[in-house]
């Protein structure tokens, strides 16, 4: 009997201890998560060093006129004050700007030649020495609703980072607008079919409009590497 009462007493004591237990810890207040840092400002894509990659929906401004063009997807582009420049790793280039045409025709021809020289230096393209006569075009083609002149001039070169100079042709375009002409050229290696097509497509993509914010789709982080590598 004593043993039973001792066991019961021990059980009661144990229950009492377990029931009370150590004082409960206060739960730590849950800290509200810090708001994420604001996204970096969108690149203005005004320099090639910003490494803005074009996509198929990019609208890049052509300086001096309210017109835009879509640089070849995957190419690095910049909307500089001097020109819209797009380049590819394989050596392809598109450079477009606006000129105020002069009269008479022979002065306009010289103006075109001078501008080509200036733009070529801008993008390190070396046109053939005696090919700058841009009077009668190779073909005329309707772009932005007007008859544009296109000149095809082979024998140009452009140095690339790895490897020998790329040899190819330049395609010069002049689109007469009311006061100004959209003027520029594209370059692609003669064996670089993709760049050749891309340059031609970029020139045909010229249309009236405003440049779209680069942030929406053209941030360097969102560059479409697969497209870039395919060029």
């Amino acid at each position: 009997m004593r043993r039973i009462s001792a066991i019961l007493t021990l059980g009661l004591v144990a229950n009492a201890f377990l029931a009370c237990g150590p004082p409960p810890r206060k739960p730590k207040p849950v800290e509200a998560p810090e708001p994420p840092p604001p996204p970096p400002p969108p690149p203005k894509c005004e320099s090639l060093e910003e490494n803005c990659k074009a996509t198929s929906s990019t609208k890049a401004r052509i300086p001096g006129v309210p017109y835009v063009a879509t640089p070849p997807p995957g190419w690095t582009y910049a909307q500089t004050d001097a020109a819209l420049i797009a380049t590819s790793a394989s050596g392809g280039v598109v450079v477009l700007t606006a000129i105020t045409p002069v009269e008479p025709a022979f002065k306009l021809t010289k103006q075109r030649a001078d501008k080509i020289k200036e733009l070529a230096e801008l993008v390190s393209v070396k046109p053939r020495r005696r090919q700058v006569l841009l009077s009668v075009p190779t073909i005329r083609k309707e772009i932005v609703g007007v008859e544009a002149s296109l000149w095809q001039r082979p024998g140009a070169t452009r140095p690339v980072e790895d490897g020998d100079d790329v040899r190819g042709a330049i395609l010069v375009v002049s689109i007469p607008l009311e006061e100004k002409n959209i003027f520029g050229f594209g370059f692609a290696g003669k064996d670089d079919g993709d760049s050749t097509k891309a340059v031609f497509a970029a020139i045909l993509s010229i249309r009236e409009g405003k440049a779209e914010s680069a942030q929406s789709e053209d941030t360097p982080e969102e560059a479409d590497d697969s497209e870039a590598s395919s060029q």
């Binding site: 073909i139 395609l171 031609f200």
Partner: peptide, 14 residues
């Protein structure tokens, strides 16, 4: 009407 030069085969055009 100026006579157009004969189209030549090239990289971008024709």
């Amino acid at each position: 009407r100026r006579r157009q030069p004969p189209p030549s085969c090239g990289q971008f055009l024709n």
